[in-house]
Design a protein around this nucleic acid. Structure first.
Length: 465
RNA sequence: UCCCCUGUAGCUCAGUCGGUAGAGCAGCUGACUGUUAAUCAGCGGGUCGCUGGUUCGAGUCCAGCCGGGGGAGCCA
């Protein structure tokens, strides 16, 4: 059968690039089939866009295969593109022929009605065929492109950092172990597991961040970014956490924390603008079915100047708020979700960049301020999702960094020797941050659960498909 | 990991006071000249998450376990 002769439905419905009366062939899945005595309709979706193309069959008895076409069947339809005689669509296909390429049966789980997201998660291999998950996956693709576009246009290099690491103390959560040892028969030495006989002659893990390696490349290439998968073995059971997710980590050599703030703000605004302008159909869909305020939320962020406040100022706002928080507020404490939400949703009513956190609650690699009490960390908070970006200006002074490691991770001095080399040879101020891709997608689409913006989500207790 | 909610047909759900299982959709059969979650008539479809307990009798009450969801912590 010839599959090369084909018109993507997006060419017809989105680009409006196919002339009426053209002969077209579409390949796709039958979404619904409606038959009556004189006329039958098959809505075909080929995944190229949100919309279905309605194929019209008259009279149906000339197309006996229609009786075998159920929702979900793969079909090829050939016919003439015409203006629709019915209401509800501009074009339709006056069909000359239809081939049933891949049949389906009554057990096909997807029906012509709304399914719960919980049910669809159990059939993650079929859910991309639905309107919602088709839109999610298309917007995921388009925003991936937008990320590259943003950085490439600004002279950042896309670099790849390792997914396997032997460094277990990057300070960003629990790690998945990578091993080829027989777990039922572990090699022992002096009563301990002998890791030197493992594949890498050492204990190995899946990386929780590419930041440290990213710094090495930034110092060589100037400005870089990573965009790839990352892994956290935290037992986090929330709608915002996944065990495997994609992260964007830009790193700028020759940069201090103000540059970091500017980049973060510009980056988010670029992505939101891109979604609104380049993903119109998907955004209309999300606005109608998922989150009525999706578009408005993005527009307000694009227009807002992000409020830049120090941690100390944030604490003052919280203390003066009169709110009763479950976790009491005092200088030195971690900002809890409820605190972050109050700041961005109630006090400021716009995105906030909070910086200069107490050194005791942040990672060792962050630049120590002259006050000796705070580091140049930054969290970007947005209404509804909370923390969407975390980053910092890095500590580039060798002696200060050594002291910080000695104080916070004394057992790992040895494994950071290469990282200290970056300060030993040609050091300079540099800064960067991490943005969780799925969290951006949640924010843009209004989808409430990270399991529904990841294509095949991995969370504690679930790694199917 | 902690707190709360929840589990009934393929899907979405109802099931009152403890009295022996229901609807819509999907599927099948038929009707219908333009439908669009098509409509109309009919038919088939159940280990009520699992195990145990209370009771003459449990979908319903109790306990434990398992699954799912929401929130918290950790974070992106």
């Amino acid at each position: 059968m010839d599959y090369k002769t084909r018109t993507r439905i997006a060419r017809i419905l989105v680009d409006d690039a196919v002339a009426v009366d053209s002969d077209v062939t579409v390949l796709g899945l039958a979404r619904t089939v409606r038959r009556s005595k004189g006329v039958a309709f098959v809505d075909v979706n080929d995944g190229s866009c949100f919309g279905n193309l309605q194929a019209v069959f008259a009279p149906p008895e000339n197309f006996p295969v229609l009786e075998k076409i159920l929702t979900g069947a793969a079909v090829r339809v050939r016919g003439k593109l015409v203006r629709s005689q019915g209401k509800g669509q501009e074009y339709e296909l006056a069909a000359d022929s239809i081939d049933l390429v891949g049949e389906t049966d009554a057990s096909y789980p997807l029906q012509k009605k709304r399914h719960s997201f919980e049910f669809l998660r159990e059939i993650a291999h079929l859910r991309p065929r639905t309107n919602t998950f088709g839109a999610v996956n298309r917007i995921r693709s388009k925003l991936s492109y937008a990320i590259h576009k943003f950085y490439q246009e600004r002279g950042f290099y896309y670099i790849h950092t390792p997914l396997i690491t032997t460094s277990d103390a990057e300070g960003a959560g629990d790690l998945f172990r990578v091993t080829t040892l027989d777990v039922k028969n572990l090699p022992m030495k002096d009563g301990e597991i002998d890791w030197t006989s493992d594949f890498f002659n050492d204990q190995a893990y899946l990386a929780v961040s590419g930041q440290l390696e990213g710094e090495a490349l930034a110092i060589a290439l100037g400005d870089i970014y990573t965009f790839g998968p990352t892994f956290r073995a935290e037992n986090s059971n929330t709608s915002r956490h996944a065990s495997e997710f994609w992260m964007i980590e830009p790193e700028m050599a020759w940069a201090e924390q103000e540059d970091n703030w500017d980049l973060a703000e510009e980056f988010l605004k670029f992505l939101f603008t891109y979604a609104l302008e380049e993903c119109k159909d998907e955004m209309d869909f999300f606005g109608q079915w998922i989150d009525k305020e999706a578009r408005q939320t993005l527009e307000s962020v694009i227009k807002a100047d992000f409020e830049r406040i120090s941690y100390t100022e944030a604490i003052k706002i919280l203390e003066a708020s009169g709110e009763k928080f479950e976790y009491p507020v005092e200088w030195g404490c971690n900002l809890q979700s409820e605190h972050e939400r109050y700041i961005t949703e109630k006090a400021l009513k716009k995105p906030a960049i909070v910086y200069d956190y107490p050194e005791a609650i942040k990672a060792f690699y962050m630049y120590l301020n002259d006050d000796g009490k705070t580091v140049r960390a930054m969290d970007v908070l947005v209404p509804r999702v909370g923390e969407i970006i975390g980053g910092s200006q890095r500590e580039h002074r060798l002696d200060v960094l050594e002291e910080r490691i000695r104080k916070m991770n004394p057992d790992h001095m040895e494994s950071y020797s290469w990282y200290l080399d970056l300060r030993r040879y040609g050091t300079r101020p540099h800064a960067g941050f991490g943005l969780g891709f799925e969290r951006v997608l949640m924010y843009i689409t209004g989808m409430a659960n990270i399991r529904d913006v990841a294509t095949f989500p991995r969370v504690p207790g679930w790694a199917k498909f």
